[in-house]
Amino acid sequence: MSANSNRHTASNADPGSQSGNAIEIADLSVWFGHGADRVDAVKSASFVLPRGASFGLVGESGSGKSTILRALTGLVKSWQGTMLVNGETLGRKRGKDFYRQVQMVFQDPYASLHPRHSVDQVLSETLSLHKFGDINDRVEKLLTDVGLGPQYRFRYPHQLSGGQRQRVAIARALAPSPSILLLDEPTSALDVSVQAEILNLLTDLREEQNLTYLMVSHNLAVVGHLCEQIAVMQNGEIVEILPVEDMRQLKSSHHYTQHLLEASMGYKST
């Protein structure tokens, strides 16, 4: 599973302005439902990812991490604030161009793959939607890149293990050669050896194509490996943004982050 430089031919059309930022989020709030049933899933979140950056989102389960990614990709409509991708302000709709630039790997690979579409269909359709040629070769290459051999090409999701499905989802996200990848727990279903291969692949892709990553993971070692900056979320809010060096030294200014860092040092039976 090595990433070589002629991976995908055409690089993306100039992704937006020269501002140098891939993602800018300011004062983003996202909610579900209304009235008494309203859930404020994200409260006034702000962060910036320069092009080529790798940014981690960690924090409490249910704190709004996936919701931020879903709002960016246009899957949640009820939000306010400002979101810019490659210098362009996002409205309510996302066109095909947007998905050429921005792809997402979902937390739940089972739900994100159509049960009656084979691996081949999933990848070929994404490729042809984005007008790529030599689809056959590309499908094989994508499968090899994520450590699944061509023998998995004609399988259906129910015939794959959890980690194999996750890798199909990663291959699908890589298919259109996006410039920004939103990764929601991309390796949590993978054993650590396959995880290492996927993380190395992501490192290589970033080096070759200056990709930008926004990654959610509860695994601080994984986030620490891939990201230079980490935002910590609790109960809908970003409570702290810290550089990875601080995280490594368990230095943080917020008590929740401190708690998270200490707890991550290992399960202790009580």
Binding site: M1, D191, V192, S193, Q195, A196, E197, L199, N200, T203, L220, A221, V222, G224, H225, V244, M247, R248, S264
Partner: peptide, 20 residues
């Protein structure tokens, strides 16, 4: 053993992870 070696660690960063 290979599995144990391919884990990323917060306290000892490496550029590339060891693969099996």
């Amino acid at each position: 053993q290979g599995l144990l070696n391919s884990m990323p660690r917060l306290d000892t960063p490496v550029k590339r992870l060891q693969v099996l």
